[in-house]
Design a protein around this nucleic acid. Structure first.
Length: 763
DNA sequence: TACCAGAGGAG
DNA sequence: AAATCCTCTGGTA
């Protein structure tokens, strides 16, 4: 049989492989009962290990240790506790199915030719050729008269499914649309949901892990309807596996892209992400009133809304799938696991795989005590040069390509190469005195080098590839490689990492500071004025120098760098503005530039922050553009017009909303700021506020401090926005820090009536 | 006015 | 479940 491995499950010591037959399109369940769980035991004689007792299947000598083989996964906890008493245990906490995939070298989402005896696996080998999986998104609506629906008593009233061939809503009350399928009652609906889920390989949801799937499971349990849903306790919430399928929760994917810095939105509701990905608005509906429509039987709008939710989840899922397929192939784990991993877990899995092939035994995860002591000792990080505030002309920006990865590779930075015996007089010595081996390649640089050289290959291939599907695949692959390479430095300082290495991290940043400071002094010696530098970048002010001088400097500088390192030209910029801190002096990490093609790039300023109103951000952007285009009159005009618009109540409410994340339980706050106050009001209205939620609020007129007057937009009622607040605390601070750099004062704007009771809101 | 808690950005 | 460096707001005394 030829087919793609899509899921792996275990039942006692039996591994079940779910393989999609590329010819029939059916998913076959193949079993392998030849693999037993094991761990390593160090510093113990074989004879002594034999007494470990119940569940011990066998002992082998391996990698200079004893390989303790158990009968089944559930025997491992007991065996390792016993083993811990007599020696040092290793690799005792690698989940059974993950262990299986590492040891067999099997990669999910890859095509293999499988040799079977009935449904028993005999052997497999890699196979080239096309394959595909069917995909479907779904979303449920629930009855929620109390605000949050309660799975123990509130029924599921509707479910929507979407893919390119199908748009379907199933519900148990009549509705007009042709895409609606009506069933008798909730029980039939749940049964239909399980059928629909069963008819695709990949199921997309948006927050299905923590809402839709646990909800369905609970309701199905009530009716004694069997499902393939398997809920597992995750780090934070629940993980919802669908046995034999791929459940891809798009919300997790979006979160992942956010944590690695590839996506940044004020909010991450389904409609926000859909808009970001497609540019299209979704049908808007107040879901808190959904139950009323249901009771009244007026659900036509609800069916439209629900179907759009499924479509949006599908669109987002489709964006994420190619990247996850590549991660599966790269780390050799299932989509279920990979899509729920952090970047550091991906790095660690890759290192575990690498250690296995190098016949090394992996280090253990830290104990809680070690973890705490690691956390308590922060290391020194990057260098940031104090910029000079004000407007500057003719800039060139240089930066080191992948600075930290290239340092790791060229100086062989790894826990096992640190202070080696063989290079006492001739290692790579970091500026802060750490020495790394020059003779034997470390596991981390070896892995990084593979990632980066593969990426170069893929990018080369991408250039000569025309087929759009193939290009999408290759692009996802180079992205997966890049993400993993970029996460590696952070991994070495991640306090729960197996290959944690504080000295490595300290050496990497020390070399980083060394290279960027060396670049600064070389540039200055060459006659450039260095305006600013941050971590891996350097801003040059050309003055009497030319672009050609920059190119020549770049070339000379590169010829002296280690092979894996490279300084690149980010670009030329006709103008740039650096701002002054509130308490004086130039601010680091806050500036704006204009490219030669007129494109404006804003860094760190209010415009890029979500905890400022849209009004302040948009006004600041306009002012920055005007200043960088040297249109001072226009800049002033923008501010004056905006202030007039606020006073006249012409600014839409949406532009006044400030978004701030709630980072902890409301009860855990010592300082009650406006966003906490607004969150409390939201809770009083029946909405459950949990850590991680983003709260939007508007500051209204009235008595008390700002928090006392902050309301979520949906609870604002008759209250009017506070004109003075938006002028004096939003627009003016955001724009004045720009304008004051070019000598414009607040008085020059003829604002008048700052204390204004003149500002009457007439919206 | 000085200080702190809290948030979010840059690289 | 990445780390450090950095700025700024609102609340409090």
């Amino acid at each position: 049989m030829k087919g793609v491995l899509i899921d792996v499950e275990s039942d006692n010591h039996i591994i079940k492989l779910f393989i999609k037959d590329t010819e029939t399109g059916k998913v076959e369940e193949v079993v392998d009962s030849s693999f037993y769980p094991y761990f390593y035991l160090l510093g113990v004689d074989e004879e002594d290990a034999k007494s470990l007792g119940e569940g011990l299947r066998g002992i082998e000598r391996s990698k200079g240790a004893l390989k303790i083989i158990a009968e089944k996964p559930s025997d491992v906890p007991y065996l390792r506790e016993k083993a811990k008493e007599i020696g040092e245990i290793r690799e005792y906490d690698i989940p059974y199915t993950q262990r299986y995939l590492i040891d067999k070298g099997l990669k999910p989402m890859k095509r293999y030719e499988w040799v079977l005896d009935g449904n028993k696996l005999i052997s497999f080998k890699e196979d080239v050729g096309k394959w595909s999986v069917s995909r479907k998104a779904f979303d449920i609506e629930t009855y929620n008269p109390q605000g949050m629906p309660r799975p123990s008593q509130d029924p599921v009233i509707m479910a929507s499914f979407w893919n390119e061939e199908l748009g379907k809503v199933i519900t148990w009350k009549p509705a007009k649309a042709s895409f609606v399928e009506m069933v008798e009652d909730e029980k039939r609906l749940i049964a239909r949901i399980t059928e629909e889920i069963n008819s695709a390989d990949v199921i997309y949801t948006y927050n299905g892990d923590n809402f839709d799937l646990p909800y369905i499971k609970k309701r199905a349990d009530n009716y004694k309807i069997p499902t393939a849903i398997d809920l597992r306790r995750g780090g934070q919430g629940t993980k919802a596996k669908i046995r034999g399928k791929i459940h891809l929760d798009a919300y997790l994917g979006v979160n992942f892209l956010t944590t690695i810095g590839w996506l940044k939105l004020p909010r991450y509701r389904l409609e926000d992400v859909y808009k970001e990905f497609t540019g299209k608005e979704k049908l808007d509906m107040e879901v808190t009133d959904l139950w009323k429509d249901w009771e009244n039987g007026t659900i036509d709008k609800v069916t439209d809304y629900s179907l759009q939710d499924a479509e949006a989840a599908y669109v987002i899922g489709e964006r994420l799938l190619p990247l996850y397929v590549e991660f599966c192939k790269l780390v050799g784990q299932t989509m279920f696991d990979v899509s729920r991993m952090s970047a550091s877990q991906i790095v660690e899995l890759l290192l575990l795989k690498k250690a296995f092939h190098k016949k090394q035994i992996a280090p253990n995860k830290p104990t809680e005590h070690e973890f705490v002591s690691r956390i308590r000792k922060p290391i020194k990080g990057a260098f940031v040069k104090q910029p000079e505030p004000g407007l500057h002309e003719n800039l060139a920006i240089l930066d080191f390509r992948s600075l930290y990865p290239s340092i790791i590779i060229s100086h062989n930075v790894s826990p096992e190469t640190l202070n080696c015996e063989c290079c006492k007089d001739d290692g790579y010595v970091s500026p802060n005195g750490y020495r790394f081996c020059k003779k034997k390649r470390g596991i981390i640089p070896e892995m990084l080098e593979e990632l980066l050289s593969k990426r170069v290959e893929v990018k080369k291939l991408l250039k000569s590839t025309k087929d759009p599907e193939e290009r999408k695949r290759l692009d996802a692959k180079q992205q997966a490689l890049k993400i993993t390479a970029n996460a590696t430095y952070g991994y070495t300082l991640f306090a729960r990492a197996r290959w944690y290495c504080r000295e490595c991290g300290e050496a990497i940043t020390a070399w980083g500071r060394h290279y960027v400071q060396n670049l600064i002094s070389q540039a200055e010696e060459t006659g450039f004025k260095v305006l600013y530098a941050d971590t891996d970048s350097c801003f040059l002010e050309l003055r009497d120098k030319t672009k050609e001088d920059v190119i020549k400097f770049l070339k000379d500088y590169n010829s002296k760098l280690p092979e894996a390192m490279e300084l690149e030209l980010e670009g030329f910029y006709p103008r740039g503005i650096f701002v002054t801190k509130r308490e004086g002096g130039a601010a680091k990490k806050r500036y704006a530039l204009i490219r030669e093609d007129g494109q404006v790039e804003i860094t760190g300023l209010e415009f890029v922050r979500r905890d400022w109103s849209g009004l302040a951000k948009k006004t600041q952007e306009k002012v920055i553009r005007a200043i960088l285009e040297n249109k001072i009159g226009k800049a002033k005009e923008v501010v004056m017009d905006t202030i007039d618009a606020i006073r006249e109540g012409k600014v839409p409410l949406d532009d006044l909303v400030i978004y701030t994340q709630i980072k902890r339980k409301i009860s855990k706050y010592d300082a009650i700021g406006p966003h906490v106050k607004a969150a409390k009001r939201l809770e009083e209205s029946g909405v459950k506020v949990e850590p991680g939620m983003t709260i939007g609020y508007v500051v209204t007129q009235g008595a008390g401090n700002i928090g006392d007057r902050s309301y979520p937009p949906q609870l604002i009622g008759n209250r009017k926005p506070d004109v003075d607040y938006y002028i004096n605390n939003q627009v003016l601070p955001a724009v004045m820090k720009i304008l004051s750099e070019v000598g414009i004062k607040e008085d020059d704007l003829k604002i008048g009536g700052k204390q204004s009771d003149l500002g009457q809101w007439v919206g």
